[in-house]
Computed example of a mutant assay.
Amino acid sequence: MATQNQDRLRTHFSSTPDKEHNNRWDDLWRDSTFLPWDRGHANPALIDLLQERGRPLSSPDPNPSLGAPPPNSESAGYASLAGPLRDDKKRRRVLVPGCGKGYDVALFAAHGYDAYGLEVSSHAAEAAKGYLKDADKGPMEGEYKVADEKIGKGVMNVVCGDFFEDGWLADVEGWEGDEGFDIIYDITSTGGVLICLEFPTHKPASSGGPPWSLPPLVHTELLKQPGEDISYDDQGVVIKTDREETDNALVKIAHYTPRRTHDAGVIKGLVRDCVSMWRHKVDCPEEQRWH
């Protein structure tokens, strides 16, 4: 059953065409009195993933979401989440699309990565810049302190732009060197890793959004053939197919139900969110894939 906030958010967007949705997000951030997606801190699932250095604790409980992994899933792919420093001691770079107030940006920087938040709303970008000036005093302040004093904290930057356009890349330091991003949280350069927090997995497809229903099977189908349409049934539920991976496919290297997540992802005592990790097919040997 939809909550009052979900109904209000859906109504806010349903009255305008898709091409105007960026402006509608900006309207919400400008007013800043109705931000139901803002939980006040980074998702505990991401906190655990970084603290465990790529080997997070997975839930022992079954997750009934469509396409969810079995309990206590393990995978060699966890090791693909590289540390913050490259062999040449330069910091690895992380992109957080739709960063909101920048909680995840602060978290990645605390673990030594150079972190970039991207927001389509100029008012959201300004809110994030303000938050990051004093992130250590946030409600989860212990998670935003430097994780390793020898490595130190990475930079925290926020840029404004549309993820599907390239203009914002001019504001990413060093981009002209074509270094790309090593990690994207929410496709990525050669050798990089895509981390997806799959939420809401429990929401009926027919209920609309935002947030839109996102069972794990959606990522599986989309990333077999990036850029191509996927199939849904007459209820709006994604259909599992046997279509082949294209050369530019992303392949799954890890998939698990975390022990912790935001309260919105816990339904009747069960964590329903999932975390999946992906690499480009050409960069991923078979032994690193999730099976």
Score class of each variant (00 low, 15 high):
8 R>Q: 12
64 P>R: 06
122 S>M: 06
46 L>W: 04
281 K>A: 09
32 S>F: 12
236 G>A: 00
208 G>C: 10
241 T>K: 11
228 E>C: 09
173 E>W: 01
264 A>M: 08
14 S>H: 05
174 G>E: 04
179 E>A: 09
187 I>N: 13
201 T>V: 15
113 Y>E: 07
124 A>E: 07
43 N>G: 10
35 L>I: 07
205 A>T: 14
90 K>D: 04
61 D>M: 01
119 E>K: 04
279 R>Y: 05
173 E>Y: 04
102 G>D: 08
28 L>T: 06
285 P>F: 01
179 E>K: 14
3 T>N: 03
178 D>W: 04
6 Q>N: 12
260 R>T: 07
22 N>A: 14
272 R>F: 11
134 D>V: 06
178 D>A: 15
9 L>K: 01
5 N>Q: 04
40 G>N: 08
112 G>H: 03
176 E>T: 15
126 E>P: 02
109 A>M: 00
16 T>H: 12
187 I>G: 14
124 A>R: 00
120 V>T: 04
111 H>V: 02
50 L>D: 01
211 P>G: 14
7 D>P: 00
91 R>G: 05
37 W>C: 01
176 E>R: 15
117 G>M: 07
206 S>Q: 09
271 V>W: 02
215 P>L: 10
120 V>K: 02
30 R>Q: 11
120 V>W: 01
147 A>F: 02
261 T>L: 04
25 W>Q: 07
252 K>F: 03
237 V>F: 08
230 I>G: 13
128 A>L: 02
268 K>W: 02
255 H>S: 04
77 G>A: 06
96 V>G: 11
33 T>V: 05
272 R>I: 06
279 R>F: 02
107 L>W: 04
91 R>S: 06
61 D>H: 10
37 W>M: 08
16 T>F: 10
159 V>C: 04
4 Q>W: 01
48 D>N: 11
